[in-house]
Write a protein that binds this DNA or RNA. Structure first.
Lengths: 126, 126
DNA sequence: GCAATTGTACTACATATGTAATCCAAAATA
DNA sequence: TATTTTGGATTACATATGTAGTACAATTGC
């Protein structure tokens, strides 16, 4: 039962790239390129993030002809759950429903979205 | 338009104490005592947190006969909103609905809770 | 009035994080 | 083959954060 490491904001961006192509590991350069559009990080910055993620065992790599191909060791799902729980605990004292209520009151949802959420709720009553 | 400062995990605990008694500012000792039950921080630790919060203008204090009485400068609501948005942006790319869907599928909600959520959704369609 | 206490002001120090730059060896190129 | 380029390893450095400790001045108890 592996526990998910804490992934920082900047690291999370890198993970998103790797998760998006979990089937085919990415080279550092591919990650760097993927992030060029969303961030203005220098290549060295991305490499540092990759190294840190490898250190904390969030990712690993295989060596293909002297270039590393990185891939995630933890699933997006696990990490999302973990971060969400931390968030809930911190901000809402761990209570799920108050958060939902708060969100629902705040957020502008389209009629379709509301319908979708209601149908999910319907399913849960069965 | 004051922007909310970033409040760290440990600082958040302190803020919760102050928010709980927004009407009556707390002395450092009161905060320390309130936190004794939830944490095992030494008094000095809490004082450091109070100082940092004051530095980042999340709180301020008035001096009552050489003892400081601390009070929040930012509302819990503001901060919750801010942290929630950061969280959403980081984890769900800013999209509110996917998160909700995810949560609703995961969480075990009681029939009453489901009913309450549905009624909130109903209100929104009007 | 002098000593002990206490509240505040600084100082400390390791780890995390954002954001890279430098060094070095292997590969590609001229 | 000598040189430039490039990818990885190591180092850098400021700010944030967790978690206090020390110094000092005013207050309070003898």
């Amino acid at each position: 039962m592996k526990s998910v490491p804490h992934i920082s904001d900047a690291e999370w961006e890198v993970m998103k790239v790797l998760w998006a192509r979990a089937k085919t590991p990415c080279t550092a350069n591919e990650v760097i390129e993927a992030l060029e559009h969303q961030t203005d990080w220098k290549p060295k910055t991305v490499r540092t993030l990759l190294n840190r993620l490898a250190q904390k065992q969030a990712i690993s790599y295989s060596q293909e002809n002297r270039v590393y191909a990185y891939f995630p060791l933890v699933s997006e799902d696990e990490c999302v759950r973990y971060e969400t729980e931390s968030f809930l605990k911190r901000i809402y004292g761990g209570a799920f429903k108050p958060m939902l209520v708060n969100f629902l009151k705040e957020e502008k949802l389209s009629p379709e979205e509301i319908k979708e959420l209601k149908s999910i709720l319907d399913d849960k009553t069965k």
